[in-house]
Amino acid sequence: EDALLPVPQNISILSINMKHFLTWSPVIIPGEMARYSVEFQGEYEREYANESWIPICECSLITATVCNITEDISATVAYNLRVRTAVGARRSKWGTLKGFFNRITTSLTPPLMKVIADGYHLLVELEDMGPAFQFCVLYWKKGQESRMQQKVVKEVGSVVHLDTMEAGPDYCVKAQTYVESINRSSSFSQTQCVRAQGGRSVWL
């Protein structure tokens, strides 16, 4: 009778900025509430542990059709993922993600960034994207792109001081993220320019 329970379809991964989610289409069973359970299998389990699967307890018998697998996808290796339907004691067969998932394929977006001119100080505030992220910040005097300077920010806590500005010229800044564990960077953010004017912060 188990075979009658439909297997979840359209199983796919949504991975952005090292946050990984498994999603699938809802299984419609008239008069019943479908629940789902998710399991993963890393390269280690495939190669050294008899192809064993490991359940994700936060996604065991859930009604949602999405599971946050970020904490379990914690190595840059190929993972298999599967999900099945459950109604009462009945279980469907497993539906397995087509192909492996490796976090190296995550989409990296440019960081949110706020550039501040605090008097003559050029500051930047960066979005906290988690411990896996570093930032490469480029800054230059407008019109002097050839003399662009770089600062690598490994930990985002407070505002980062980039430079002491001269009065008058605009100073421009852009930033990208870098994830060491997958050795990839995002594209650069939009450029933001500010200008120092006495003690007042000025936005351009």
Binding site: F40, G42, Y44, E47, A49, I56, E71, S74, A75, V77
Partner: peptide, 11 residues
């Protein structure tokens, strides 16, 4: 799960 995470990171 954590042992799996460590083992896969070792690989």
């Amino acid at each position: 799960r954590k042992i799996s995470s460590i083992a896969n990171s070792f690989l």
